[in-house]
Design a protein around this nucleic acid. Structure first.
Length: 220
DNA sequence: ACCCAGGTGGCCC
DNA sequence: GGGCCACATGGG
């Protein structure tokens, strides 16, 4: 197997998929709402939920805090786990309004401190916390997800069940401290994963096929 | 009729 | 520290 360090992996994916502008031009409220709604859901379904909220002029944490729970649940229903997610959104909205004068005040804290705080909140796990830090707060925090684990295990032979933070540290330590790179690299992992790295082999035409231990033999 | 999706938390041993 | 499980909808 040829070696493929993370920066070169990014270059390769970027060359293939182009710059992927995730959550472009959205408000921080919308990014956080989307980060919660997308937990174990397809983005297509999240878009429906977001569109329902927008239609009701409720794509806003303060308004979500004041909405009737049943109404919120109905709006976000397409994104799945809608009762849990409604509670998570309510809890987030309540937390911000009772502890800060604005969402921006919370998001302007240091990344490490903000991470601890987000992780202490109910329904906010590591991936959601890091997505909020990276895309809403705009601070370098690498977002790991199931695709990131699967792809790195197939290319580098690492444990597919690697600890979230271990992989996060490994990638962070080997790429430059550049916000746009952090944002886009995660998006590239997801793009590659969706197209070519499902649990079943989809090696055909995969941009990193020759580096992949899963299908590398076919590529050689 | 399955299997999967841009996870999280709880409970068990 | 790992292995299950519930949570729920919509698309392939």
């Amino acid at each position: 197997m040829r070696s493929l360090p993370f920066p070169e992996l990014y270059t390769k994916l970027r060359g293939r998929f182009g710059y992927l502008d995730w959550w472009p031009g959205e408000t921080t409220d919308e990014i956080i709402i989307g980060a919660i709604l997308t937990q174990q859901a397809s983005w297509r379904n999240v878009e429906k939920a977001i569109s329902n909220l927008k239609e009701a002029d409720c794509l806003d944490l303060k308004k979500i805090g004041r909405m009737r729970t049943s109404s919120l649940e109905m709006r976000i229903r397409p994104s799945g786990f809608y009762r849990q997610k409604a509670a998570k959104l309510k809890a987030f909205a309540r937390y911000v309004s009772s502890n800060y004068s604005s969402l921006d005040e919370m998001l302007s804290k240091g990344a490490g401190e903000l991470r601890e705080e987000l992780l202490s909140m109910r329904g906010i796990g590591r991936e959601t916390a890091d997505s909020i830090i990276l895309y809403a707060a705009g601070k370098c925090m690498f977002v790991v997800d199931a695709y990131t684990k699967r792809i790195t295990s197939r290319i580098y032979g690492s444990d597919p069940n690697i600890e979230y933070d271990e992989l996060r540290f490994d990638i962070s330590a080997s790429i430059p401290d550049d916000l746009e790179l952090y944002k886009d690299f995660h998006a590239q992992f997801v793009e590659l994963g969706k197209k070519y790295c499902k649990t079943k082999p989809l090696c055909n035409d995969c941009p990193v096929k020759s580096y992949c231990q899963y299908c590398g033999s076919a590529a050689r």
